[in-house]
Nucleic acid binder design. Structure first.
Lengths: 207, 207
DNA sequence: TCGCCTTTACTGCACGGTACGTTATGGCGG
DNA sequence: CCGCCATAACGTACCGTGCAGTAAAGGCGA
């Protein structure tokens, strides 16, 4: 339950820690760094969280919750697979572009020393998302295939058949790579990026 | 000049360091860890490299050279833009999938503490690659536009115009995200992945 | 002889975490 | 209303450990 409560010191610690971990790396960010950024002492920090590990643990849990609530849950009311995929693309990109969500969710994609059980949970969640996306893409492929009968069969023979799995990884790459290049002051923002990426998926790069 | 010389201790140190840095993170990998993995002492390690920083520096330089030699240089003899783009996709994916190149080049995409000058150089190289790709995609768009006259204009009005820039980032995302999900023992390997990703680019996800 | 180590010991520093003291605040009872 | 107490939320000083890097002496093999 990520409540927007700037008055909650624990949330503030998590947010600041996530930002510093992302900027400098987990191991290169000391608890003194985090404390200083919060204008606390280290002792004050340890009043709220038992260890540095616990902070990382909580950040990861929070990041997984964001994806669940912001992306996956709103899709459940959408029956049409194509519409569902379009909405997924939009929602996922919105999470990546949102400053608040970005600094937390980027942590899911970086290599952190995590306890095996947490690492396992995160990997399981990632796999679920991939499978979900894979199935959704398969549905959309099926739908489009029954709506548009194939023409000029011999021209299509040279084209590779794209598996939903490869397509799912490609789409995740397109979206999640945004963490690497996105700039809040750049000219690619939600209102032009989402339509373009959606068009790349549905119309191709050169349609 | 990355020479395939397993007898070159410096190269061996760089390779092993890159692997460990990638697995555990730069800061969480000690010089003792690196030395132990090489069956050396720390003192022996410092005989070859002056500092941990220097090792990281050399790894990064090497990674940039790989991209230049393996991807960009071979493209120069190809006149046709579409052919050039197809080849770029193939070569870039091959780099990511090659065990030797992957463990070095992945370092380019992780958040390491780097001296500002090296960070600046890497960012400049990345930008060059993006610009190169952007221009190439624009050429292909232009070529395809002059070859295939647009039909049913009103049906196209609802489609977003995809800028070469957005397309370039999307393509880089597709390819570079492979670092995140690829498994040497998985069912997606070069011979099926390259055709599928190429098809995704040229034919779309649902063509 | 020289390159390439090993071993040992060390330095200075920074780290995560701990222990204890202090302060501010709220609640309660006389 | 005020004193007292409990507690949360700190701050400071400290601990033990591990780090990058250094130095010196010596060994071994080509």
């Amino acid at each position: 339950m990520p409540r927007d409560t700037a008055a909650d010191p624990k949330q503030e610690i998590l947010r600041t820690s996530a930002r510093l971990f992302q900027q400098r790396g987990y191991d290169a960010t000391s608890m003194n760094d985090v404390a200083a950024a919060l204008k606390l002492s280290k002792g004050g920090l340890y009043h709220h969280f038992q260890s540095k590990d616990e902070i990382l643990f909580e950040i990861m849990n929070h990041a997984m919750e964001i994806t669940q609530e912001r992306v996956l849950n709103p899709l459940q009311g959408i029956a049409d697979p194509e519409e569902r995929l379009r909405t997924l693309i939009r929602l996922h990109i919105e999470v990546v572009l949102s400053p608040r969500d970005r600094e937390i969710t980027v942590m899911l994609h970086e290599n952190h020393p995590l306890p095996p059980s947490l690492r396992k949970r995160i990997n399981a969640r990632k796999k679920e998302y991939v499978h979900f996306l894979e199935k959704l893409i398969a549905e959309v492929q099926q739908k489009i295939r029954t709506q548009k009968p194939r023409g000029n069969g011999s021209a299509d023979a040279a084209k590779a058949k794209v598996s939903p799995r490869a397509a799912a990884f490609a789409l995740l790459g397109m979206i999640n790579w945004i963490y690497q290049w996105y700039k809040p002051e750049g000219d690619l923002q939600a209102q032009n990026l989402i339509p373009q990426f959606t068009e790349l998926v549905f119309g191709g790069f050169f349609a």
